[in-house]
Design a protein around this nucleic acid. Structure first.
Length: 274
DNA sequence: ACCGCTGTTCTCCG
DNA sequence: TCGGAGAACAGCGG
């Protein structure tokens, strides 16, 4: 599920669900690796209203007015769902019981997600957060900021864009989408980009993230559920072998940093002509 | 039955 | 120290 746009949607969803409500009981599931080194009983000390809900990259920082909070990452399959009290949810790893009889579950089948409870005052200072690079919304993403963040990487451009210590929030899908919008080959080296390409890329990243948030916010309101066989919502991701939506050339894919990269060989030439 | 996967972290190797 | 490859985590869907 989660790259920056999905996490941002989850944040807004939590704010809506918790609006005017209080947590009357916080309940970590037992025996799950969701809490890793952290202390699950600290999660159980969460109470009160949701006083702050921030996002840094793909991380959520939730603070409650009882003074406790939590850093949360959705991993690959984490999501929040809200259910009536007493209804059990498969793969529920933690629960927030609200004073209106509803329960917010953190559902995460594959257990790649993570919850780190912490006092609200310490949330933003946690090492995990301190290690993140710039957040495109909280910090902005001008061409200059983009160059400063990834310009010195020796890795392939797409791999560098996915490095959370450089830019926080892009994953496999949105890095590919942004490069397609910018018409830049994913295996270009950062040092080879011209100024106009950096400008295009900065603009493309913002456009990709804005679009992702807008689209999913709409789906969220519509109570949209992913139906089997629903069309691929992305411009380039997952379209290998089908015509490029811009020029009709067959979309190609290859492996980069252990992940599949999709691109259009015509729109995103390895050797751009100037 | 096998493969791949919107993420992170670790090990091994050059 | 850096970068690349591969694995591990665990479940589901094609």
């Amino acid at each position: 599920m989660p790259e920056l746009p999905e996490v941002e949607i989850a944040r807004r969803q939590l704010l809506r669900w918790m609006n005017g409500r209080r947590v009357v009981k916080a309940e970590p599931a037992r025996g799950v690796r969701t809490f890793r080194g952290a202390d699950p009983s600290a999660f159980a000390r969460i109470s009160g209203r949701l006083a702050e809900a921030h996002r840094r990259g793909k991380y959520l920082l939730l603070g409650f007015d009882g003074g406790m909070g939590a850093l949360m990452h959705l991993g690959m399959t984490g999501k929040f769902v809200i259910r009536p009290e007493g209804v059990d949810e498969p793969y529920s790893r933690a629960r927030l019981h609200l004073d209106d009889g509803r329960v917010i579950h953190f559902r995460d089948p594959r257990l790649f997600g993570r919850i780190e409870p912490a006092p609200v005052a310490q949330l933003h200072a946690l090492g995990t957060i301190a290690a993140l690079g710039i957040d495109p919304y909280a910090d902005g993403l001008s061409p200059g900021q983009l160059v400063a963040a990834v310009g010195d990487s020796k890795q392939d451009l797409k791999v560098a864009l996915m490095d959370q210590s450089r830019i926080a929030g892009l994953g496999n899908i949105h890095a590919a989408e942004a490069l397609f919008r910018a018409r830049i080959h994913p295996a270009r080296k950062p040092a080879s980009l011209r100024a106009d390409e950096w400008r295009r890329l900065a603009r493309a990243i913002r456009a990709t993230l804005d679009y992702g948030i807008r689209t999913q916010e709409h789906e969220d309101e519509m109570q949209y559920v992913e139906e089997p066989g629903s069309p691929n919502p992305f411009l380039i991701y997952g379209r290998a072998g089908t015509p490029c939506p811009r020029c009709g050339t067959r979309v190609r894919s290859f492996t980069q940093g252990g992940r599949t990269t999709h691109y259009c060989p015509r729109c995103q030439p390895k050797r751009p002509r100037r």
